[in-house]
Write a protein that binds this DNA or RNA. Structure first.
Lengths: 152, 152
DNA sequence: TATCATCGAAAGTCAAAGATAGTCAAACCA
DNA sequence: TGGTTTGACTATCTTTGACTTTCGATGATA
């Protein structure tokens, strides 16, 4: 089989993950190493290192920027996979809550964590006349903080 | 990870705050020590030693000028009230994150909880072409589940 | 001696330049 | 025809430097 550059880049990243659960790369260096354009690194990450396949990508731009690839440890958990699938559809408050309760029952989250998540997805948190991302964020954080104020 | 000069300056200041609740520095001396221009010190202070992160900066110009960095230590109840106040305004991702980091620093939430909250208010979670509440809810839950899949 | 002008030594501001990474669509190829 | 490759354009974070503001010290003068 003739491997594409993308295949080689994929292999390189996967073998780098042998030792640790995550690696940090420089997009530009990696592109130079494989003699490709930098955006091809993004292509590989977007097509092969998805949450579905058990990876999480984080990055930072600017001076001393980086791309961090993390291998998930729990991505084989069938319930989580399933829940993620369900979350591709819109969820009512009640449906969302049921998922959170399942997470709790299976001990994937603590009681406290479950409460926080419920606050984050409560109708009140997600309601806003002006639905800008930033306003939603402050709404959600407000509800979480109110939950935290309950003490514990 | 390749640290930027700004990262190093941040670390230096934070470790200087290990012993005391405040330090006084000379902007010029610090700049010389890190072989950078003086205004880079301001950059670090403005981006990393913000009130949201729990620091107060005072300074004096002129002959015997100085910069004083103080670590805030009001109690957690006050902090929560204060944070709730801040949340009445829209928050950028970075501003939201700083609040979550404070919650962590003050041991109001665990590391795991902090990660979950960050997922909930991430740009990706709050982005949706159709900003209905239900769609947002499933977005947020997706990001949280992906975070849970990372394991730990 | 009291006051005031001046000067030098800080720190502050802000915008441009530099260094990364991200997006997206066209072109390419198997 | 669908997955790859490319590159132009964009977004974000850092570094730099020219210009501004403030403060204390010093010296001149009434």
């Amino acid at each position: 089989m003739n491997k594409s550059i993308s295949d080689l880049i994929e292999e390189f990243i996967i073998s780098s993950l042998d030792d640790d659960d995550f690696i940090e790369l420089s997009r530009n260096d990696l592109a130079k190493f494989f003699a490709c354009v930098p955006s091809q690194i993004n292509y590989v990450l977007n097509t092969r290192f998805t949450p579905n396949r058990g990876f999480v990508i984080e990055s930072q731009r600017g001076g001393s920027g980086y791309i961090k690839v993390t291998r998930m440890q729990n991505n084989n958990d069938n319930y989580l996979k399933n829940a993620l699938e369900i979350c591709r559809q819109p969820l009512t408050f009640s449906a969302g809550n049921q998922i959170v309760e399942q997470l709790r029952l299976r001990d994937i989250v603590t009681e406290h964590e479950a409460q926080l998540i419920k606050s984050a997805i409560s109708t009140k948190a997600l309601f806003s006349p002006v639905n800008t991302g930033n306003k939603l964020r402050s709404n959600i954080l407000s509800e979480i903080i109110i939950e935290l104020m309950k003490g514990g």
